[in-house]
């Protein structure tokens, strides 16, 4: 149907999925080094030593691609009064009672919050990850810095993984949103239901 609205350009979609691919790889290799029960995941990367070698590069690639995406989307993710109201009505959100919620623009408060959680955890992961990157950087840091960085790296990774799990589930839950990121478009009805403010703006722009 040519009536559909473009939500993500091909470049935005490519950027998103490139981050996703590196997130999966960095997560699998990172979890292998995090818990003994998951050390077997290192087999996917060619063994323990290869996992140790590859993980930081995968992480840096994820960060750089995310940085580009974050710069693209930061403007749409400023939280406002409507968003605070939206968050207060979390019960309506999770029970699919959208009609009771304040009007949502391009992104709802949950999506915006996720955006900032990702920004925060990515920054912490980058800085702490450099400190504990033994091959190139660790020699320049004191033992306390290494210990803090190790702990913060794990904590930020957990935050990121939990955030992405919620993100993935939301895409399964809200039908039509996966399509937006796969082929770029959403139906007018989808836009009206989930992002009425954005829909109005798009229609206004077209006139």
């Amino acid at each position: 149907m040519n009536n559909d609205i473009e939500r993500y350009t091909p470049s935005e979609r490519t950027n998103h999925w490139a981050v996703a691919v590196f997130f999966v790889l960095a997560t699998l290799s990172g979890l292998a080094l995090f818990h003994p029960a998951l050390f077997g995941l290192s087999g996917l990367f060619g063994g323990g030593a290869w996992t140790r070698i590859l993980h930081p590069f995968l992480g840096v690639a994820m960060f750089l691609l995310f940085l580009v995406m974050a710069i693209r989307f930061a403007g749409h993710n400023r939280l406002d009064a409507n968003d605070r109201q939206w968050l207060r009505q979390m019960g309506d959100v999770i029970n699919n009672r959208e009609e009771r919620l304040p009007e949502v623009g391009r992104y709802n408060a949950g999506q915006k919050l996720l955006f900032w959680v990702l920004v925060l955890s990515m920054l912490v992961l980058l800085v702490s990850g450099i400190v504990i990157w033994r091959q190139y950087f660790s020699a320049g840091f004191g033992i306390q810095a290494l210990r803090w960085a190790s702990l913060l790296h794990a904590a930020a990774a957990l935050l990121l993984i939990l955030g992405i799990l919620v993100h993935i589930y939301a895409a399964i839950w809200i039908k039509g949103s996966l399509g937006a990121m796969l082929h770029g478009t959403v139906s007018r009805a989808w836009a009206r239901k989930h992002h009425a403010g954005w829909y109005k703006a798009v229609v206004r722009e077209r006139k």
Binding site: I161, Y169, I172, W173, K175, W190
Partner: peptide, 21 residues
């Protein structure tokens, strides 16, 4: 925490169900 998050999502889908347009 990771396991619980996945399970929460699964049971939300089972109880509340997908949000369709």
């Amino acid at each position: 925490a990771m396991g619980a998050t996945v399970l929460l999502g699964f049971f939300h889908y089972v109880r509340v169900g997908p949000n369709r347009v």
